[in-house]
Design a protein around this nucleic acid. Structure first.
Lengths: 159, 159
DNA sequence: TTCCGTGCAAATCTTTTGCACGGTC
DNA sequence: GACCGTGCAAAAGATTTGCACGGAA
C-alpha cells in the first residue's frame, strides 16, 4: 500500500479533507459507513455554502455519478452531522432550513440572503467577529455560537 | 381635553404607543379594525421579546381579560404586521418562528437563545451595530435588514 | 451473525388556505 | 349594503418516525 491514499489516516491531520475527517469522527463515534452518508458527505464537502435537504436530495439524484439518497436519510444524516459538530444549521428566513459543513479548518462565515431570488452567499468579516467576541463576554449567556444574516437585494436583483 | 389621552392622536406623534401607531398605520392601509387584531396588538405591545404564534394564542386564551383568538388569525395578523413593517420575524433555531413588534421608537435589538431551556432574551450593542453598518457597505448586497442570534447556555442553565 | 444504515410510507407538526358568518365602515 | 376580519376545518409543506431489509463490521 505504497501509494495507498494517506487519506486512510483520517485521525485529524490538517491535510485531511472535511469529508475524511467527518468519516473518521463518525467512525470513532461508533457509526458504520453507509453509501448514503458517503454521498452526502462528498456533496457537502464540495459546497461553498448552505443547502436545504431538498437541494441535497435533488443534487444527489441528478448527478449520474452519485447514488440517490432518500429524503429521510438526508435529514437523518444532517441531524447526525449537526449533533457531532460537523455541520451546522443555517436559518435564512426562507421556508426550509439549510445546512453546511463546519470545522476548524473551514473558514468561519455568515450569510447574505437575497429576498428577491433567494440566493444565499457566504461572507466573513474580522471586525464583526471581534465585535461579537467582545460582546459575548458581556451578555448573560455562556455563548457557544452565533449566527448573522444580512438580508436585502443581491446585485442582480437590485439592478 | 386637558388631560384627555393625547393617545387619541395616533397620527404618528412620538408619544403614541406602538399599538396606537399600529392601528393607525393599518387603518391608513385600508384595514378595518377587528377584535382579534386589537387583542394581538395589545399583547405584543406589552412584550419585551419575541413570541411564537402558539404562545400568543395561549396568552390570549389564558388571560380572562382578553378574548381568545384562533391560531389562523394569529398567523394572518402577524403576517400583515410584518408586511407593513410593524413586526418582524425572528428565527431562533427553534422549531417555531417568533414575532415581535418593531418601530423607530422601539429600540433595535437582537437575540440571545438558551439551547437548554429555550429562553429568548433581547440585547443590543452599539459597537456591533457599527460593525454591521460598515460591513453593509462592503458586501455584494443592498442590505435592508440584519439579524443576529447568539446561542449558548443562560445563567440559570449554565450553573 | 449482529446491528446499524437506509428506503419507503405513514405520522407529526407548523403554517396556510377555503369557506361562511358577523362586524365595521 | 359592501367587504373585510375571523373562526373552524381542511390542506399544504417540512421534518420525523416506524418498520423491514440489506450491507458493514
Amino acid at each position: 500500500m505504497s501509494d495507498a491514499p494517506a487519506d486512510a489516516d483520517t485521525s485529524g491531520s490538517a491535510t485531511a479533507s472535511w469529508k475524511e475527517r467527518a468519516e473518521s469522527t463518525l467512525a470513532a463515534a461508533g457509526h458504520k459507513r453507509g453509501g448514503a452518508r458517503r454521498a452526502v458527505l462528498e456533496l457537502l464537502d464540495g459546497q461553498e455554502c448552505a443547502l436545504t435537504a431538498v437541494e441535497i436530495e435533488d443534487a444527489l439524484r441528478a448527478r449520474g455519478a452519485r447514488r440517490p439518497v432518500s429524503r429521510a436519510s438526508v435529514y437523518r444524516i444532517l441531524d447526525e452531522l449537526e449533533r457531532v459538530g460537523l455541520a451546522q444549521r443555517v436559518e435564512t428566513g426562507q421556508t426550509m432550513v439549510r445546512f453546511e459543513r463546519v470545522s476548524e479548518q473551514t473558514e468561519h462565515h455568515h450569510h447574505l440572503v437575497c429576498d428577491e431570488c433567494g440566493q444565499v452567499m457566504p461572507f466573513s468579516d474580522d471586525e464583526l467577529e471581534r465585535a461579537i467576541s467582545r460582546l459575548s463576554e458581556k451578555v448573560p449567556l455562556s455563548v457557544s455560537e452565533h449566527e448573522i444574516v444580512l438580508r436585502g437585494a443581491c446585485r442582480h436583483c437590485a439592478s
